[in-house]
Amino acid sequence: MSDDFPVDEMDLAIVEQLRINGRATNQQIADKLELTAATVSARIRRMEKADKLRVVAVSDFAAHGFNVLMEVAIEVDGRAASEVVDELSEFPEVFAAHLVTGRYDIDLLIALHEFDDLHDLLLSKFSQVRGIRSMVPAIAVDVIKYKFDVAPIDARMKA
């Protein structure tokens, strides 16, 4: 079976049911859409296998005790930005790290339990990474929108 197939109406209807309740059983979905549970199961598996769908629980920063969220733009000097970002992404406080175009070279998203943790992150961790010229933070004070149900699905997202 080819991994790339066009998604049809039936697939979309199943996804819609999963968006309403990701934990609905195959039988519950089948009853709503007048299909068999075996069909629902096979369709979900086919989309998952082709990296078109993941049904998962996402958890809030607060569930992990993260109360401070900030973005940090980093300017690199005297070293390849790709090396610097590899080192920075080793730190557990860094939950996203991207190489970017523009005035800065690296963009990080950082989650901390509390502001006091910034001390340790800057002075014991980031200060050990060679090649950082400057860091400019933006501290999140309010999250207005955070959409997470459409995303490229790749190897990093696999269970």
Binding site: D86, H98, V100
Partner: peptide, 16 residues
């Protein structure tokens, strides 16, 4: 600013 490469991204922790 465009991300040309994503080195790390934890998509399972979000703001609900």
């Amino acid at each position: 600013s465009i991300a040309v490469k994503t080195v790390k991204y934890n998509s399972r922790i979000v703001k609900i």
